[in-house]
Design a protein around this nucleic acid. Structure first.
Lengths: 343, 343
DNA sequence: ATGGTAGTTGACAGCGCTGTCAACGAAGGT
DNA sequence: ACCTTCGTTGACAGCGCTGTCAACTACCAT
């Protein structure tokens, strides 16, 4: 194995002590600019990369960002990872994955992982970010965390889009396109976004003076099969909606599937809208109108914000109270209109 | 942060030296059974987890498995991660992700990551596993690696399915279903499996006495758009195939998309088969017939095999020559037949 | 000149663990 | 009785880095 240069080599080359190299690497203040340049030059020449292990051991940190997830869609996970990795790379952090287990005591399992991995910060994805018991334990354990794509209602900082407005906006699009009998498929109750998306739908309907028919509001599990089930119920009778807004793409795909099997033309007989812009949405025929969240960006920003939380102000006297503040960053969503709503 | 127990606590509790605890943790030989039990008990009670950082620093290893990938499909990545993590968890290893950059000198970038991360072993996914220059550099650097889902022709050990037979088998299914005019969409040349899958297709056609029409053999990029392009070419004229075997699902989805837009009924006017069993394949209507690779298992087995390579025999006198041997493990594939081929 | 302050640097201990080596007792051969 | 061998255990150094603290250098005010 091509053995990497150590801090000693750099120090010798730059003619300073290893401590000074350490200062430069960690962007500590109070290093003369000339000295810093010397060190940086040596680092460049030797292609020096600090050892995570040694830094972690000595500094009591792990230089690891933990990503906890459960049951999320593949594309969401991969995109989020992309964003996180992008932020990690710059600061020489690593990413540690923690898929939630299927065990009955999920929280205990996750906490064990936290204790054994000791990540410096954790990124929580839905539905974990909406899990009060988990969040409580994390706060107890004094672990810095941030949640993505989730409300953050009293559950620490988060990076997300305005779910209500996004859903409202998509519903408005359906209404503008002339659809009036619109059904809705909600997500599972343990996802905070389920309610928000429904609320946005209601807002658009109300402001257009359209009724929300409770027969046309179903609850799904964010997966294909539950979309099929919900659609079958809504579409079986003669009194059926002319458009269905599913609160994620997988369920919308299920709706389109049912439409095909029932001989309904999309969008002529039935318009379908989704949420998330998964690859699925692009590959269907007709293409699925959906809401695109900037997942990669969300991952990156969340990571950067998270790092800010525990790197904190250099002169920080462990003023930990601010940690679970209600900060949240709202990123812009994008309405992606394709054939399934008549575009 | 709930601070974890250290090796010292365990040693004190068991009434032995920390070295003995270390021996037990590392499954080293020459520890009396009674002593081992004492230590194990203490470990249990204190819920002790060794610190990766300290182990790595002291032992010159990182306890990290690297996963290098480039441009793979989301579901493939996530499933592979699942398998790898499963294997890692047991042995207290971590997983470090290394997405290939878009830079022109990809190999250099990847090697820099290797040097800075120092993973104990690397899992290579296609098309990286077929990249001779990368593999050469890895061997030079004396890094242990294994490739998954790739031929392993002289490029180190690998875990895979019998691609040729899988493709042959799917083609045979089309032939058995009565299709004779069968088109094929190959993958890009830098994926070793592209040739193998085509070879399997040829084998089935030849042994059934059917001609392989070169107008009906196109090369795609393993993505949706190239599937669309290939299908458009094959289907535009009057002399068109009655079935198309795309060598992955994304391209098959493109074919189905074109069929819809051309008013062709799948499978009546055109049968379509894919390869990979991505979620896409299940969600299309009709469902896409495809070949399912046991990705999770592949990931797990590859990881376990990889660990065996560098943990090696306890009495190993650095006999590194065996490292780049031609070992490969072949796992069973599964033919998943759905509506797109008339099931 | 003298003292005070802030900016800059290095010596040194030690993070939690593993590798090396030496110490010890038990078992076996002479 | 002796020496040898082997299995078992612990003392100790040190992995590459950071935190602490002390030293040293300006530089200003007195």
């Amino acid at each position: 194995m091509a053995t990497a240069a150590t801090i000693n080599d750099v120090a010798k080359m730059a003619g300073v002590s290893i401590k000074t190299v350490s200062r430069v690497v960690n962007r500590e203040p109070n290093v003369r600019e000339k000295t810093r340049d010397l060190v940086l030059q040596a680092i460049q020449q030797l292609n020096y990369k600090p050892s995570l292990a040694a830094r972690g051991l000595a500094g009591g940190r792990s230089f690891l960002i933990g990503m906890m997830y459960d049951n999320a869609s593949d594309s969401f996970l991969v995109d989020l990872q992309r964003g996180i990795l992008r932020a990690c790379r710059e600061r020489h952090y690593g990413l540690a994955l923690c898929p939630a287990s299927r065990a009955e005591d999920r929280t205990a399992d996750l906490m064990e992982w936290v204790v054994s991995t000791q990540p410096d910060g954790i990124i929580l994805t839905p539905p974990l970010s909406d899990d009060q018991s988990l969040v409580d334990r994390l706060i107890d354990a004094n672990v810095t965390f941030i949640s993505v794509s989730s409300t953050g209602t009293g559950l620490g900082p988060s990076v997300l889009i305005d779910e209500v407005d996004a859903a409202r906006s998509m519903a408005q699009h359906l209404i503008d396109a002339g659809y009036q009998d619109i059904g809705f498929i909600k997500g599972p109750a343990d996802h905070a976004c389920s309610d928000l998306r429904f609320r946005g739908f209601e807002m658009a309907m109300n402001s257009a003076g359209l009724p929300v028919n409770s027969d046309w509001v179903k609850v799904g599990e964010f997966d294909f099969d539950s979309g099929v089930a919900a659609a079958e119920q809504m579409l079986k009778g003669p009194n059926r909606p002319t458009a269905i807004f599913a609160s994620n793409d997988d369920m919308a795909a299920g709706v389109i599937n049912v439409a095909y099997r029932s001989g309904l033309n999309v969008p002529k007989d039935l318009a379908v809208a989704g949420f998330d812009d998964t690859p699925l949405a692009q590959h269907f025929w007709p293409g699925l109108s959906t809401v695109k969240q900037p997942i990669i960006q969300i991952g990156q920003q969340a990571t950067e914000y998270l790092m800010g939380l525990f790197e904190g102000p250099p002169s920080g006297d462990s003023n930990e109270k601010t940690k679970s503040g209600e900060q949240s960053m709202v990123l812009p969503y994008e309405l992606v209109l394709r054939g399934s709503t008549g575009a």
